[in-house]
């Protein structure tokens, strides 16, 4: 694997490899000093055009636990000059002799473009979320979290609920869940589904109450305020009434079924506050596993062949 741009590029073996590596890094994370020297001397840059403190910190923590040097470029700071083109910024970073660039951008496809521009130089690119396209490390940590609770994903039924149309998390997770053998049902009003689902290995439902008793996991997507002004839903109140995971609806789920959310949550919109805290919720596990999964990805992309994960 040269870059991590999209789950759609990955086969099942690579995902399994990330899962296995993540096991080791979870173990590292539980040590008194949760750090290994694997990437000593390597430099990882986080290039965030979209503010996302949680994702950025998760990547930077992962890189530091692998002993890599970390540089941060963010649009809020002066390090990305106003008006400087994306390509110029990437060239500047590449010229610093970095080993990996972790890119977050509001436009779909930017990590792919960055990967093309650095192709000659050997720099690795990791997609930390691009527009409505993909967020592959989120999907990998979601798969890992589901496996912790459910064992294998094979044959599991997972409902992804909400704004699939605008969701990079949904696109990555649909690819990841289905390649690992789960059945995915999208539950949303038609206005929040992609215009075309040709080639998507999913079923579609507009009735959350009917789906909840059947699923092993329900994945709630973040619902944004703007969707109301774009006339995609009449109001957030109506959205919650039809598609929110309220306490009443959570009761419909089978014993052992789990609730996921990529964060940050709009409590009271797509998920009720008490549901987010209930025993079925694995939302805090998702955050905790994020660092270990990202360590696994950095290890796969940057560590020498056959390097030992937990040496020292």
């Amino acid at each position: 694997m040269r870059h991590l741009l999209s789950i759609a590029d990955l086969d099942v073996d690579v995902i399994e490899q990330v899962m296995t590596l993540t096991d080791s890094f979870v173990e590292v994370g539980e040590r008194r000093i949760p750090k290994v020297p694997t990437l000593r001397g390597r430099t990882v840059v986080s290039l965030f055009y979209e503010e996302s403190t949680r994702t950025r910190l998760s990547f930077e923590t992962a890189a530091k636990r692998l002993s890599a040097d970390v540089m941060t470029f963010s649009v809020g700071s002066s390090s990305v000059k106003k008006g400087e083109s994306l390509r110029d910024t990437v060239q500047t970073i590449e010229a610093m002799g970095v080993d990996a660039i972790v890119v977050r951008h509001g436009s779909a496809g930017v990590p792919r473009q960055v990967a093309n521009w650095v192709e000659a130089g050997g720099v690795r690119v990791i997609n930390a979320g691009d527009g409505a396209h993909e967020h592959p490390t989120q999907a990998l940590l979601d798969c890992y979290t589901l496996r912790e609770r459910l064992g294998s994903l094979r044959g599991m039924r997972i409902a992804i609920v909400g704004d699939v149309k605008h969701s990079r998390v949904a696109r990555s997770n649909i690819a990841a869940f289905t390649v690992l053998g789960a059945h995915v049902t999208l539950v949303a009003p038609p206005t929040l589904l992609p215009e075309s689902l040709v080639g998507w290995p999913v079923e579609v439902s507009h009735d959350l109450d009917a789906e909840l008793p059947k699923v092993d996991a329900v994945y709630l997507l973040r619902m944004q305020q703007e969707r109301q002004t774009e006339a995609l839903v009449p109001s957030l109140r109506e959205y919650t009434a039809c598609y929110g995971l309220t306490a009443r609806r959570a009761e419909l789920m089978a014993d052992g079924a789990v609730i996921l959310h990529p964060g940050p949550m709009n409590r009271g919109v797509e998920i009720a506050a008490e549901v987010a805290e209930c025993p079925s919720s694995v939302i805090t596990r998702q955050v905790a596993n994020g660092v270990a999964v990202r360590m696994a990805v950095l290890f796969l992309l940057l560590a020498a062949e056959g390097g030992d994960v937990a040496d020292e």
Partner: peptide, 9 residues
């Protein structure tokens, strides 16, 4: 269409 939906554009 198919590609805009898949690519998130």
């Amino acid at each position: 269409g198919e590609w805009s939906s898949r690519l998130g554009i």
